[in-house]
Computed example of a mutant assay.
Amino acid sequence: MKTILVTGSNGLLGQKITEKVLAEGRVSLVATAKGINRYKSTGGYKYAEMDILDFEQVRSVIERYNPDAIIHTAAMTNVDTSEANKELCYTLNVTATENLVSLCAEKNIHFIHLSTDFIFDGENGPYREDDEANPLSYYGETKLLAEMAVKSSHAKWAIFRTILVYGITSDMSRSNIVLWAKGALEKGLPVNVVNDQYRMPTLAEDLAEACILAVEKNASGIYHISGKNYMSIAEIVRKVADYWSLNQSFITEINSATLNQSAKRPIKTGFVLAKAIKDLDYKPHSFEEGLAVLDRQMKKVSSI
Rank of each mutant, 00 (worst) to 15 (best):
D130E: 14
L136N: 09
V79M: 14
N78Q: 15
Y138M: 02
E83N: 00
D130P: 00
L92P: 00
N99R: 13
A105V: 00
F118W: 04
H113Y: 15
L103C: 11
P126G: 10
V79L: 14
L103W: 08
D117V: 13
N93K: 13
T95A: 09
G125L: 06
N134P: 00
P126Q: 13
G125M: 04
I109D: 03
E132I: 09
H110V: 12
L103G: 09
E98C: 04
I119D: 01
D80V: 02
A105H: 03
N124R: 15
E132T: 15
T116S: 15
V94S: 05
A84K: 15
N134T: 01
F120T: 08
F111T: 11
C104W: 10
P135G: 08
I112S: 03
A105M: 02
H110Y: 09
F118Q: 10
S102M: 12
T95F: 03
E87I: 15
L103M: 15
N78S: 12
L103P: 01
F120S: 11
D80I: 04
N124K: 15
P135C: 06
Y127M: 12
V79T: 13
N134Y: 07
L136I: 07
S102I: 02
I119A: 03
T116K: 09
N108Y: 05
L136S: 12
D130L: 10
F111G: 06
T95Q: 13
G125V: 07
V79P: 01
L88P: 00
T116A: 12
N93A: 02
F118H: 11
G125K: 08
I109L: 09
P135M: 10
L92G: 01
E83W: 01
I112K: 03
D117M: 13
A133L: 01
H113D: 11
K86H: 10
L100I: 11
A105P: 02
A105N: 05
T91H: 10
V101L: 11
K86N: 08
N85I: 02
G122V: 03
N99K: 14
K107P: 01
I119R: 00
K86L: 12
P126E: 09
A84I: 05
N99W: 05
I112M: 12
K86G: 07
V94A: 14
E123A: 13
P126M: 14
S102C: 14
R128E: 10
F118P: 00
F111Q: 08
T81K: 08
N124D: 14
K107D: 08
S102G: 08
N99T: 06
H113W: 01
L88Q: 14
D117C: 14
H113C: 11
V79S: 04
I112G: 04
D131T: 06
D130A: 12
V101N: 03
D80E: 14
P126I: 11
I112D: 06
N134K: 15
S115W: 10
Y90W: 15
C104V: 06
C104H: 00
T91E: 13
E87W: 03
A84Q: 14
Y138H: 10
E98R: 15
L136C: 02
D80T: 05
